[in-house]
């Protein structure tokens, strides 16, 4: 027995080794084919997630940019009550995590009878949060417009809103553009926080696929899609900055 065993064992090992190498080869070689196939299988669900991410991104910008501009005007206004209120609002929104705000709106408010749909809750929290950041950026921009510009407009008898529209906003837009751009890029990534209230965004789609199929590929793809989105944003922002370069 003992002799037999020692006789067989080396040969078995060689065979096993050989098979293993073959198997390895098969796995590695086949993997490429397999993963391409796999990507094409999960891509539709990732793209659905991307659409949700983009929807949150776009609506937040559409809501928060004008709101932030109005709040910014309020922050530099002479009306004390408005100023105090807006300062408090900005402090609240910038001083607490956006994640907390999302959870508060979706899981917290129903306790006191205010119920939002998931998607509405997400937009509500995002718009309020980003308006606060934009308000602060616009405040800075508004304050950097020379007081003399307002006086020049005043002696020309332009009204407050004519001055704001024709003189101040174009100048502020140019000043705040880089900072706004920063927030826009942040928003692309922050939108993934809606994950916590169960919205099927890009990150969720990737995470679901990754957990189900026990593979890294969906997460890598999610990373690539975020990179593409931010690259597009960066490009667009550059173009807008260039557009404003015709005057100094």
């Amino acid at each position: 027995m003992k002799q037999l065993r020692t006789g067989v064992e080396p040969r078995l090992l060689v065979l096993l080794n050989y098979l293993l190498i073959q198997e390895d080869f098969f796995i590695i070689g086949g993997m490429n084919m397999l993963s391409l196939h796999y990507i094409s299988q999960i891509l539709p669900s990732l793209l659905v997630g991307t659409t949700m991410t983009l929807k949150i991104f776009c609506w937040t910008l559409i809501g928060a940019l004008p709101l932030g501009m109005i709040f910014g005007l309020g922050l530099v206004s002479n009306i004390k009550l408005v100023k105090y209120f807006l300062n408090f609002y900005v402090w609240l929104m910038r001083g607490t995590p956006l994640l907390l705000q999302l959870i508060f709106v979706f899981y917290g408010l129903p306790i006191v009878g205010i119920v939002f749909q998931r998607y509405d809750a997400a937009l509500f929290a995002f718009i309020l949060n980003y308006s606060a950041y934009f308000a602060e950026i616009f405040r800075g921009g508004l304050q950097s417009v020379d007081r003399g510009q307002y006086e020049a407009a005043k002696v020309l008898r332009l009204s407050y809103w004519q001055t704001i529209r024709k003189i101040v906003i174009p100048q502020v837009a140019k000043i705040v553009l880089p900072s706004i751009g920063n927030e826009v890029i942040n928003l692309v990534k922050d939108s993934s926080l809606v994950y916590v209230i169960g919205i099927g965004d890009l990150l969720r789609a990737g995470n679901v696929a990754s957990a189900r199929d026990v593979t890294l590929i969906p997460l890598l793809l999610v990373g690539v899609i975020y990179l593409l989105l931010t690259a597009v944003c960066t490009y667009v922002l550059r173009r807008v900055e260039k557009h404003y370069a015709y005057w100094r």
Binding site: G148, Q149, E151, L158, I167, W247, R248
Partner: peptide
């Protein structure tokens, strides 16, 4: 009634020379 030429002029930098001059007559 009273026009002002400021020490540092305070032209509107975002507007052309022509628009600087025509803005107020048009709007006001």
């Amino acid at each position: 009634v009273i026009g002002v030429v400021f020490q540092d002029y305070q032209l509107f930098p975002n507007l052309t020379v022509l628009d600087n001059v025509t803005l107020a007559p048009q709007m006001v």
